[in-house]
Nucleic acid binder design. Structure first.
Length: 155
DNA sequence: GCCAACGTTGGC
DNA sequence: GCCAACGTTGGC
């Protein structure tokens, strides 16, 4: 079991959108960075824990919990000329971009980026490093435990 | 393979 | 909208 943080722009897909989707599951389309793709293609397993992060918005931060819900498969948007994620160099025979489905588990009170930064225990989190822009990053078990047990209220 | 130019990310 | 940081592209 591994843990991940996955960024989504709430204008595109928010935690509420994901919870409202069929099966509370959305395909994680639009990733066009090789490192992030490789995490989905090579490292993720069904059931892995996901911190659902809202980025590029008024209040960036962790907005909910989710889990990896599928094995990797080609991102269909790469084949769609009408999509802004269209990749003319991708073919059905040789897809370039792979994704997984993500199932939203629950919405949580937003944990703002500033709160994450204020925690000594989270100093090593990848997204908090200077210049870090990667939209999918691994989270250590210790970081996961701290965030879910210390920064999220009990049900 | 180098590297300058350009594009993107994402917080502020 | 600004801009730092980083990734990608493409000429050589």
């Amino acid at each position: 079991m591994q843990y991940w943080l996955m960024k989504s722009e709430p204008d595109e897909v928010s935690i509420d959108d994901a919870l409202a989707a069929p099966g509370q599951t959305v395909p994680w389309t639009g990733v066009r960075n090789y490192q992030a793709r490789n995490f989905m293609r090579d490292a993720m397993r069904v059931g892995d824990g996901v911190l659902f992060y809202h980025s590029s918005c008024a209040e960036p931060g962790i907005a909910g919990l989710a889990e990896v819900a599928s094995t990797p498969y080609p991102d269909p948007t790469q084949f769609d000329p009408a999509s802004k994620y269209h990749d003319p160099k991708a073919t059905q025979e040789q897809p370039r971009w792979m994704l997984v489905d993500v199932r939203a588990v629950k919405k949580t009170p937003l944990i703002p980026l500033s709160t994450l930064r204020a925690q000594d225990e989270l100093a090593d989190m990848v997204i908090l490093q200077r210049g870090s822009r990667l939209s999918i990053t691994p989270v250590t078990p210790g970081q996961w435990r701290f965030i879910t047990e210390q920064l999220m209220p009990r049900d």
